[in-house]
Structures are given as C-alpha cells and as structure tokens.
C-alpha cells in the first residue's frame, strides 16, 4: 500500500507540532489559556462519558440532518437550474451573492426564529454547506461536452436519456468535490450554531468550559469536532473511490 506511506510525512509533522505545542504550553504554564496536548487528552478521557454519549450524538445529529437537507435541496436546485434557463438566471446570481452574507452574523437570527431547538443549528449548517454542493453539482451537469451531447442526439437519445447517461455521470466527480468541501464546512456550521444557542452539543460544551476557564475542556470537544470532519471526509472519499472506479485510470 503506497497510500500508507503517503501518510508518513504529515504524521511526522503533526507529531513534531504536538511536541512543540507541549513544550510551549509547559513553558507558559497557564492551562486556561493554552492547555497542553497531554492535558487535553487527559480531559478527553475524563469526560468521555458525556462527550461521546451526550454531546457527540447531538452534534452529529445536527451535521447529518443539515448535510442531508443540503444535498437534497442543493442537488434539486442544480438540476432545476440545469433544465430551465429562467431558473438558472434567477437563482445562480442569488446563490453566489448569498455567499457574501456573513453567516455567523445571521446565526443569532436563526436562534430567534427556531429557538434552542435542533433547527437553528441545522439552518446554519444548511446555509453554509448549500453553496459548494449546489454550485459544484450545477457546474458538473454543465461540464459534459456539446460534441458528446450531439453524438447522443444523432443516436436518437431523448433529453432524459442525455441527462441520465451523459450529464449525471459527468457531474458525479464535481458533486463529490463539492461534498468534500461541504462535510468539512458542516462541522464548522454545527459548531457555530451550538455556540450561539444550544443545550447540548460539542460546540455548546466547549463554550461552557470557556466560561469556567477550563482550557483543556474547551479543546477536548474541538478535537472531537475535527475528528468528525476527518471521518466524514474519508467516508466521502471512500464512496467516491467506490463509485468512480473509472477515474483512477485517467
């Protein structure tokens, strides 16, 4: 497996980074400002019960609900824009300009609308992941060449057949790229949502520890959040590898 060997360099860098961090943290000696990696791991172990069985599932619920809605709505809108020129002209500029809205600033409004329920957090996650999924899927659907389309037409293909046999397969690699960006953003979205108003979740827990000046307690859930991001990313990469076998040979 050459894949495993590819991991040497980044692993080494991370280990070195952690060691330097540990040394600096010990030199400063103020764990409420900069806890050391060992302290964080100890904290993680200490809090494993509530973190893994209380807050992790809550955050994961937000992330997965937000992502699923985002995929359904994003892919749906991309297909709609692909079939209707009017829809494209109407929505595309709006989607692009929506990215200039600072979502963090909007998040408190969602809390106002949806209260402390899961939906305020889902809304933030949805908003932050919607863009990469919609735009990449749409670009993917548009990416198939006109020549290929003409060729299928000369074989008597219908619009639907061109969509299914040409556009969808051409869009898949684009969709996966968008999804990879979206899963990492979804973790940020959920954390922001929980920061601003929640009764459970890793983001909420981290913030609560902040008010208690528990540095290691702030970092421990963040470690878990980034672990979620990495695992989700790997899952998408695995799915991509499995469904797009043909791309390996290019």
């Amino acid at each position: 497996m050459s894949k495993l060997r590819d991991l040497y360099a980044p692993s080494l860098l991370i280990v070195i980074g952690l060691i330097i961090w540990e040394l600096i943290a010990r030199a400063i000696g103020m764990s409420f400002i900069l806890p050391s990696p060992i302290e964080i791991s100890r904290k993680l172990w200490e809090l494993k019960g509530i973190l893994f069985f209380g807050h992790l599932p809550a955050t994961l619920g937000v992330i997965l609900t937000g992502l699923s809605l985002s995929i359904i709505l994003g892919v749906g809108l991309a297909i709609w824009m692909n079939t209707s020129k009017i829809a494209e002209k109407t929505f595309y500029p709006i989607i692009i300009s929506s990215q200039t809205i600072p979502i963090i600033a909007l998040a408190p409004i969602f809390v106002l609308w949806f209260g402390y329920s899961i939906w305020s957090k889902v809304a933030v996650t949805l908003l932050i992941t919607f863009f990469p999924i919609t735009v990449s899927t749409f670009d993917g659907l548009k990416s198939s060449s006109k020549e290929m389309r003409d060729l299928l037409l000369t074989m008597g293909a219908s619009k639907k057949e061109i969509f299914l046999k040409l556009q969808v397969p051409s869009a898949l690699p684009y969709f996966y790229s968008g999804l990879k960006v979206a899963v990492t953003l979804s973790v940020i979205g959920a954390a922001i949502g929980e920061w601003l108003g929640a009764q459970a979740g890793l983001g909420y827990f981290s913030r609560r520890m902040m008010t208690q000046f528990d540095g290691a307690g702030v970092f421990a859930p963040i470690v878990l959040l980034s672990a979620i991001g990495i695992v989700l990313f790997l899952l998408v990469a695995l799915l991509e590898k499995f469904t797009l076998k043909w791309r390996k040979t290019i």
């Binding site: 060449s145 020549e147 290929m148 003409d150 060729l151 046999k165 040409l166 397969p169 797009l244 043909w246 791309r247 290019i250």
Partner: peptide, 9 residues
C-alpha cells in the same frame, strides 16, 4: 465524429 468521443466511465 472526428474525435472518438467515448464515454470515459
């Protein structure tokens, strides 16, 4: 067509 235009997948 002039190019082979085979579907890569």
């Amino acid at each position: 067509p002039q190019k082979d235009l085979l579907l890569p997948w």
